[in-house]
Design a protein around this nucleic acid. Structure first.
Length: 518
RNA sequence: CGGGGCGUGGCUCAAUGGUAGAGCGCUCGCUUGGGGUGCGAGAGACUCCGGGUUCAAUUCCCGGCGCCCCGACCA
């Protein structure tokens, strides 16, 4: 990476990036943090070790929550026979436009060129799973006979392929990693409860682990998952004012059990189709993390998702000093490790400490400990935070001073865990504040237009009673869509109550959440 | 699939109708070390592919291919 000149040096903690071009800013952060890059394969992404380590942390947190709600992991095939995928009509037509299809099973050399062997054409094409409902329900048919087999609560960690026209690292790639839960229940009530429960799991994860505040609600008919009776989602607001769907939980009713013919015998001995749910979150969440917290210096990670929570940087002049200081740095690291902190010592020689600061800040490491000769002498440590809570009107250099603190050694080490916990909370608060600053309760279409065309946009709470065609009109005029019809408790107090549709003026019982989106 | 932009050392880019240059990175040496040390030496490019114009093309023209951005499609 190029060394920035003095003018382009960045001060950490800028919540709103100076970059006008968010696309470029987003890519810069990913690059600085070494998270991912485009691969030579169209629309596909290479996740680099640091990015993958974040995903692993997410996986662990989510998996714990799935297990705690009674779910088990399993794995199903990558390939779905075409006839299986097309059994559920709406589901098939919903995904039809973005399927990768395998048609041959062998290659052959023709005139010196290796091509699919025409003789090896499959009798039935195989679709690379865009999602696994169909193949999983085909299997559930064999697993479910009695009400005693229910509920069946399964989750799968997998990759899926959706052949998107346009891709963006993490936010939309042709192949992505995700988890998909697929559950079967004896009653509609139980399935609905599961649908709502898993949305709560996602919302809890988003806020308490990712430190990204979300709005919970239901999708409009047009945005519903193909084949679902109800789609719930959590919606986050990114720093550029665009909304992002961060997770979905679907109530599938009996659609998939009917098309796969999955019946069970209830307590009365009668045969019934089972009720289904499915729910998923993907590596898109890493995109959400980046777009929510990062600044011009690079990535900012909530401590709970930081693969390295504390980086220890030894500072030394000569070999003699190096030996002593690195030894002390390793001791400090060992003490932190015993307290459950993910810590690393950057003892690389020949790289200036300042360069290391920039590097680890770019990667989003929450805390840095500097150990130098003076610390050894005084028995102290320097602790620097990746970010500090904003103070209005504060100058950058004041803030920089506030980011660092010099503490007696024991005190410094004891302060790490509480500081990480505090930073986790501060990050959520900061994201909440940014979102609040970009959220409006709007009643007039002129105000709506001004908000999205002049003020950068964000979340708009508006009354809506339009039809699908009128939703389309809003999309054309303002590039906005209904992100969700929020649950009642999700509305801010000033947005509650009845009113009139912002477009048609027709009476509306409740406001919906509108924004531009990814 | 439409609209725009770009393909030049590893990266970011410059220049030129006469076969290329910088910064960063990399290697070696010294120097330096609490916010991107400084100096010196060195390695590294058939200028995306194909064709055309020309005495001569990296440069101009045409056609591919690839990438990026903006739309349509979507987690």
């Amino acid at each position: 990476m190029n060394k920035p000149d003095n003018q382009s040096r960045t001060e950490p903690n800028a919540v709103t990036p100076r970059a006008q071009d968010y696309s470029q800013w987003y890519l810069d952060v990913i690059k600085k943090a070494c998270l991912a890059e485009h691969s030579a394969v169209r629309g596909c992404m290479v996740i680099r070790p640091h990015g993958y380590a974040i995903w692993e942390k997410m996986q662990r947190e989510l998996d714990d929550r799935f297990k705690a709600t009674g779910h088990e992991n399993a794995y199903f095939p990558l390939f779905i026979p075409l006839s299986l995928l097309t059994r559920e009509e709406k589901h098939a037509s919903g995904f039809a436009k973005e399927c990768a299809v395998v048609t041959h099973h062998r290659l052959k050399s023709v005139n010196g060129e290796i091509v699919p062997d025409p003789e090896s054409k499959l009798e039935e094409p195989l679709v690379v799973r865009p999602t696994s409902e169909t193949i999983i329900w085909e299997q559930y048919k064999n697993w479910i006979q009695s009400y005693r087999d229910l509920p069946l609560l399964i989750n799968q960690w997998a990759n899926v392929v959706r052949w998107e026209m346009r891709t963006r690292l993490f936010l939309r790639t042709a192949e992505f990693l995700w988890q998909e839960g697929h559950t079967a229940h004896a009653t509609e009530k139980e399935a609905l409860e599961e649908t709502w429960r898993m949305l709560d799991v996602y919302a809890d994860f988003a806020e308490n682990v990712m430190a990204v505040p979300v709005i919970k609600g239901r999708k409009t008919e047009g945005e519903r998952f193909a084949g679902a009776l109800e789609t719930l989602s959590i919606e986050g607001l990114m720093q550029d004012g665009k909304g992002l769907q961060m997770g979905t939980s679907h109530y599938l009713g009996q659609n998939f059990s009917k098309s796969a013919d999955v019946k069970f015998q209830n307590k009365d001995g009668r045969l019934e189709f089972v009720y289904a749910t499915s729910w998923g979150v993907s590596t898109r969440l890493i995109g959400a993390l980046i777009m929510t917290h990062s600044d011009d210096t690079g990535l900012v990670l909530p401590p709970k998702l930081a693969p390295v929570q504390v980086i220890v940087i030894p500072i030394f002049k000569n070999e003699e000093e190096r030996l002593k200081i690195v030894e002390e740095a390793k001791k400090v690291a060992a003490e932190l490790k015993s307290r459950g902190v993910a810590v690393r010592v950057d003892d690389r020689d020949g790289i200036m400490p300042g360069a290391k600061y920039y590097e680890w800040e770019g990667k989003g490491v929450p805390l840095r400990i500097e150990v130098g000769p003076k610390d050894l002498e005084k028995g102290s440590l320097c602790i620097a935070r990746r970010f500090v809570p904003e103070i209005q009107g504060e100058k950058p250099e004041e803030q920089r001073r506030r980011r660092k603190s010099f503490l007696p050694r024991a005190e410094a080490i004891a302060s790490i865990v509480p500081t990480l916990e505090a930073m986790q909370k501060e990050l959520l608060e900061r994201a909440r504040a940014v979102r609040a600053g970009r959220t409006r309760v709007l009643d007039k279409i002129e105000d709506f237009e001004k908000f999205f065309k002049e003020e950068g946009g964000g979340f708009a709470w508006v009354h809506w009673a339009g039809n699908a065609g009128q939703e389309e009109e809003m999309a054309k005029r303002f590039e906005t869509s209904i992100r969700c019809i929020p649950f009642e408790d999700q509305l801010p107090p000033e947005a509650k109550g009845e009113g009139n549709c912002i477009l048609t003026g027709r009476p509306s019982k409740q406001r919906v959440l509108m924004s531009k989106s990814y």
